[in-house]
Design a protein around this nucleic acid. Sequence first.
DNA 1: AGCGAACTGTTCGTACTGCGAATCAAAATA
DNA 2: TATTTTGATTCGCAGTACGAACAGTTCGCT
Lengths: 147, 147
Amino acid sequence: MAEATRSEPGGVEALVRLAHVVDRVFTDVARRHELTPQQARLLCLLVDGPVGMGDLGRRLNLEKSSLTGLIDRVERRGLAARNRDGHDRRACRIGLTEEGVRLAHETHGGVTDRLEHLAAELDPAQRDGLRSAVDRLLAESEAAEPS
Amino acid sequence: MAEATRSEPGGVEALVRLAHVVDRVFTDVARRHELTPQQARLLCLLVDGPVGMGDLGRRLNLEKSSLTGLIDRVERRGLAARNRDGHDRRACRIGLTEEGVRLAHETHGGVTDRLEHLAAELDPAQRDGLRSAVDRLLAESEAAEPS
DNA sequence: AGCGAACTGTTCGTACTGCGAATCAAAATA
DNA sequence: TATTTTGATTCGCAGTACGAACAGTTCGCT
């Protein structure tokens, strides 16, 4: 029963550690801007325009009750705002304020810079390999999740 | 100054999303065993034998005061125990109880299974590409961190 | 030996995170 | 229209994480 392990010796461990590195970057950058990691993640998701609560919950992997609180705190800091949806008077879409956009760009840029700085050491072949493998994994996990 | 962005279109995004997938797996598996993600991470770190608080804080990226609480809760559940160090009466080493070992193996196995199940869909070239890229990134980040 | 600096871990107060159950209003469906 | 479903909030609870202040221990230096 060690065959699977033999064929991927420590590969999973490496993935976990990589995730940890990314997480660390996110945490550090967020902190530098007086944000919590979750708040930073939220802002980055909102940077392309307003998003509904449903989408947000799915993308952040949060229960709706958790999301309400997160939005509350971000709204209280004047970084985002709830905009009621015209078609459905229950629903609301979350959009960034001016200050929110500024912070979102700053944190997104900070994270990108630091990760690109790491990725810069990869040679083009490794870059491509990483890209294609990650894309495949993501497609895979997205396909598996809706279960 | 958009050159760097042009040369890595979305590559960083892929990394972030990959981290998110790994995180999700960890959260799900932990929950299945009545653990929080952080508690699961802790158990996995302790599986190779007792570790001192200093090391733990560094590896989990936690402040010591945060670590105290985490250990408290895990100890209260009977999964780990503080063992005082013989050489330094201030220090203590955290070790797993029998039940802790059991849970640690279960969660570690669960995470590994699910990630390997994902990775199994990659063809060998992608696997190798991912491996080498991730190893490189980890080496890079470890070299950069001690700053 | 003795004194002070550095280190290890805890306590305390505070804010944030995240969940599930219960609730309410607004759709959607029968 | 009556019923069900859906979108979001509220509440209570446990866990997470930080920094400052603290106590005991060890270390370095004289």
